[in-house]
């Protein structure tokens, strides 16, 4: 088990290096250090000397990938790429171009993001599974049909409509929650509740349908028939047996969602003014702050890989037939 985890972790290193190279190349292709300097030095009255100064100050005066002028191994190490990536590999995110400690900012902004994403994820999962189980329970009746049709219609509506409509209705017209903003601690509730509800509602169509198919696949199996034949009530059959066995495909889907927790936050956070990581990323892109973008991409990749390993481990817990090799 531990050996397996270690092997998977080692396997993650080349992937992280690949991610680094790719993002780095993409970002510097669009954004030369000169551009960055100008952007950060402001609008009026910028001199070329100031740009050079800025680049030296922020470590952008070396070549990108290959330093022909440096001696020996320095040809590869005295480059912007090497300097930035090496620190990243050991989670030293360094400073953003505006001079702030990225690691500190990420740690600060993580909480608002999680305050939205975790409830959306957990409550959402519970709601989706119960709704899906309900349609399975009532399969063949008009309730099932109505539910499925509703689900298709709901998943055909862009998330933007839910967010725009929900914000308009609940915050502006009904004045039930603040329009935007955030607060720490328990006071966060009133800011978080609407984004969470909207996040869950916007995902209900697709997820409910997906889980329904998982359950329907398990429903006709022999063990389910046996359980029913033993006289277990339908509810008990569904929760004890069908749900447990359908957990494997559900888990796969759930882990795929983990990296997108970041991305999903992008829309919600910018609509509701939540000072989380999604907003941080958008800000960084708008202000062309390479350090932050690089750190976020790297973090995203790490989380994704962690997610993959966690799935594998979860499999063994849910399904004893799966053995790690």
């Amino acid at each position: 088990m531990i050996r397996y985890i270690i092997r998977r972790l080692l396997y993650a290193i080349p992937i992280l290096v690949g991610v680094n190279v790719l993002t780095f190349a993409l970002f510097f292709f669009v954004n030369t250090p000169n551009d960055m300097a100008r952007f950060h030095l402001g609008i009026k009255r910028v001199t070329p000397q100031a740009i050079t100064e800025w680049k030296i100050e922020h470590g952008y005066n070396d070549p990108l990938f290959y330093n022909a002028r440096a001696p020996g191994i320095d040809k590869l190490t005295r480059t912007i790429f090497f300097q930035h990536s090496v620190k990243l590999l050991v989670f030293d995110f360094g400073q953003s171009d505006s001079g702030r400690d990225i690691g500190y900012d990420i740690r600060q902004r993580m909480w608002p993001s999680l305050a939205i994403q975790v409830p959306t994820f957990v409550v959402g999962l519970a709601v989706y599974i119960s709704v899906a189980l309900m349609t399975v329970f009532f399969r063949g009746t008009y309730l099932d049909l109505g539910g499925v049709i509703l689900a298709v219609v709901m998943m055909s509506i862009s998330m933007l409509f839910y967010v725009i409509g929900g914000q308009y209705l609940f915050s502006k017209v009904l004045r039930l929650v603040p329009i935007s903003g955030y607060d720490t601690g328990l006071s966060a509730f009133k800011f978080v509740v609407l984004p969470v509800v909207l996040g869950i509602v916007s995902g209900i169509g697709a997820s409910m349908r997906l889980y329904r198919t998982f359950f329907l696949e398990e429903a006709p199996r022999d063990y389910v028939r046996t359980a029913r034949a033993k006289g277990l009530s339908e509810i008990r059959v569904l929760f004890r047996h069908v749900l447990k066995n359908a957990m494997i495909p559900i888990l796969t889907g759930v882990v795929v969602v983990i990296p997108t927790l970041f991305i999903g936050g992008l829309i919600m956070e910018s609509f509701f003014g939540i000072p989380g990581l999604g907003a941080y990323t958008i800000d960084a892109v708008r202000s062309q702050d390479f350090g932050i973008v690089h750190a976020m991409v790297y973090l995203g990749a790490v989380l994704y890989i962690v997610g993959l390993i966690m799935t594998d481990l979860a499999y063994t817990l849910v399904d004893p037939r799966v053995r790690l090799e």
Partner: peptide, 18 residues
């Protein structure tokens, strides 16, 4: 796996900007 692990929105942003 490498491509997959980059948040797709960031990838799209970078390419469209370039």
């Amino acid at each position: 796996t490498t491509l997959n692990s980059i948040p797709s929105v960031l990838l799209i942003i970078a390419v469209i900007l370039s």
